[in-house]
Design a protein around this nucleic acid. Structure first.
Length: 305
DNA sequence: CGAATTTGACCCGCGC
DNA sequence: GCGCGGGTCAAATTCG
């Protein structure tokens, strides 16, 4: 099933750290991948100040920015950011043809949105279903038929010794599972804030145990609960919907740092193909990056809190 | 003592 | 239909 990310691509072509971003599809939904080096700390690298003014309340769904230390020394170690990708962009998903930023969101993305609403409900699944009345059952069935849509996912790889990266939010671990083809277990976390259905799971790359892969699912509907002031913006995980659609599949380049991204092919079993896919997507995305300067401004609102 | 984690059981979707 | 693997639940346990 979700072997979508059995073929990560991790590169460390640059100094310090790098960011690997990936957009892949889990069915019709997508996950963006990116990685950054957290070095010795369980802190994620912040974006370079010139890219993200820590004092401004930029909003992006990049959890990796949560803990920016805003230290200028980190400037070179961060190479990128990503943006939420919805189906249109990832869209290409299968064929890896990045959609234009303004590509209309396909119906599947609408479904995804709907699923977001229904998702929370769905997360409780069948277990308590019998407690539900017949009506909701019926509805539930239809929902399931529609193909279960997951929340948008953001995954990133971080070089870190600790599994659970501090991102400013409070998480409760609710499960752990052994992962096939990996000797490392995957841990499941849920945001402890009430009515916030954001989840994330954390696992280590079996290819490189020093790399932690964190996958976020959903968007926080609240502000950071802890006082990681300044560099952490409130609502960082709740980008406006239009922002999401506008910066689909986008990454923020920094000094020509290489940024990798690929959309997972539906043919995840074909490694070669996937790698090719990866390369081509990478190139395409690089081209897209050319526009990022302007795009970024759209993405990151300048308004002060 | 309340909150968080651990962990085995269970559910579900998917491929064969 | 069955088995597998991912994801979640919830009781037990640990922690602060």
């Amino acid at each position: 099933m979700s072997e979508d990310y059995t073929q990560y691509y991790y590169h460390q072509p640059f100094h310090g750290g790098n960011t690997t971003a990936t957009t892949f599809h889990d069915d019709d939904d997508s996950t963006n991948y990116f990685s950054s080096s957290a070095d010795h700390h369980n802190r994620l690298q912040p974006p370079p100040p010139q890219m993200f003014d820590p004092s401004s309340s930029y909003q992006m769904s990049f959890p990796g920015f949560f803990n920016g230390s805003n230290s200028s020394a980190d400037q070179n170690s961060f190479s990128g950011a990503f943006a939420a990708s919805s189906d249109a962009a990832a869209g290409g998903g299968g064929d890896q043809t990045p959609a234009t930023p303004n590509s209309p969101i396909s119906s599947s993305s609408t479904e995804a949105a709907a699923a977001t609403a229904a998702g929370e409900e769905d997360s409780n699944k069948g277990k308590k279903e019998d407690a539900e009345d017949a009506t909701s059952k019926k509805d539930g069935k239809e929902e399931k038929k529609k193909k279960k849509q997951r929340e948008e996912r953001f995954a990133f790889m971080t070089k870190s010794e600790v599994d659970h990266l501090e991102d400013g939010y409070r998480w409760r671990k609710y499960g752990q599972k052994a992962v096939k083809n990996s000797s490392f277990p995957r841990s499941y976390y849920r945001c402890t804030t009430q009515k916030c259905g954001v989840k994330k799971h954390v696992e280590r790359s079996f290819q490189d145990p020093s790399i932690v892969i964190t996958t976020y699912e959903g968007q926080h509907n609240h502000h950071l609960p802890v006082t990681l002031r300044g560099n952490m913006s409130a609502g960082i995980f709740s980008p406006p919907a239009e922002a999401i659609s506008n910066y689909n599949n986008t990454f923020i380049p920094n000094n020509h740092h290489q940024i990798y991204g690929y959309g997972s092919s539906s043919d995840v079993n074909n490694q070669q193909q996937q790698q090719q896919t990866f390369v081509s997507t990478q190139i395409q995305q690089f081209h897209q990056f050319d526009d990022y300067g302007a795009l970024l401004q759209d993405i990151i609102p300048k308004h002060e809190p």
